[in-house]
């Protein structure tokens, strides 16, 4: 089996190395991917069309908004799938085979104090990353992951119950659904006002400013929706994996 796998991998590698000759040179501005007029349009026109300096955020949330919406749905589906696979309801003693060895009875003083200081800063930074994604690297995905990581840090430093006081399971699922609801809500609002689905320009009837500002503000709203879903699902995946689906005791 190992030999066969090795041969298959070597053959794949040789074929790829043969094909690699036809690739454009590394960093060539005139290569087909960089010369294609769609990406040139994104680079030159993004600021005049949406007043957002960060092209990646603009393309992610506006030009390719349909794509991003269903990526968020994929994350939501993965979280639901993990709950379906692992979650065990009720407390029957025969299901518990092994308790983890690393469970600390009392939180260590240094770890506890450090987390007490760090978690608010991490959460503040996560909010900054979501809100400032138009002007600097960041956005809903990164901010959501960082916000979820702050709850994971709380669960690691104390225990799972402490973190679940802030994010109980029902609230996690509500947040995850609310994120996609916000995202789709912007699309439906555009639809109701007579535009296309997720065409934010038409939302200028509801939001202050011109067409460009409406697109910029809608992007922020959409990013907040993404951040809700990603935060909730990251914490949900962690709490299911760490407690083996029982939601009693973490690692």
């Amino acid at each position: 089996m190992k030999i066969l796998g090795f041969i298959a991998v070597i053959i794949t590698g040789i074929l790829l190395l043969q094909a690699e000759r036809d690739f454009p040179d590394w960093g060539d501005p005139a290569s087909p991917a960089n010369n294609y007029r769609l990406s040139q349009h994104y680079i030159t026109q993004t600021f005049t069309e949406t007043t957002v300096p960060n092209m990646v955020t603009a393309v992610l949330a506006d030009y390719r908004g349909y794509d991003t919406m269903f990526e968020t749905v994929v994350i939501f589906t993965a979280g639901i799938a993990i709950i379906g696979i692992l979650r065990v309801f009720g407390s029957s003693s025969q299901l518990e085979h092994k308790e983890p060895t690393l469970t600390a009875k009392k939180p260590d003083l240094i770890v506890d104090t450090t987390c007490r200081l760090l978690i608010p800063i991490i959460q503040l930074f996560a909010l900054y990353v979501v809100a400032h994604g138009h002007h600097s690297p960041g956005g809903g995905f990164q901010g959501g992951v960082i916000f979820g990581a702050s709850f994971i840090l709380l669960a690691l430093a104390r225990n799972l119950q402490t973190a679940q006081k802030w994010l109980p399971e029902s609230r996690v699922l509500t947040l995850a659904g609310a994120g996609i609801f916000i995202y789709a809500g912007f699309g439906v609002a555009a639809l109701v006002l007579g535009g296309d689905f997720l065409d934010y320009g038409i939302l200028t009837k509801l939001l202050p400013g011109g067409v460009e500002d409406a697109r910029s503000h809608s992007m922020l709203g959409v990013e907040i929706g993404v951040a809700f879903t990603v935060t909730a699902i990251m914490f949900s995946i962690y709490s299911n994996l760490a407690s083996n689906g029982k939601m009693k005791e973490g690692i």
Partner: peptide, 26 residues
């Protein structure tokens, strides 16, 4: 690719390592 690098720093180096460790300990 700063946005991609930021995401990878948060997701790859942070969260997915925690997921792997929690599964390994379980």
């Amino acid at each position: 690719a700063v946005d991609v690098a930021f995401t990878e720093a948060a997701v790859g180096a942070g969260v997915s390592a925690v997921f792997l460790i929690s599964t390994v300990l379980r």
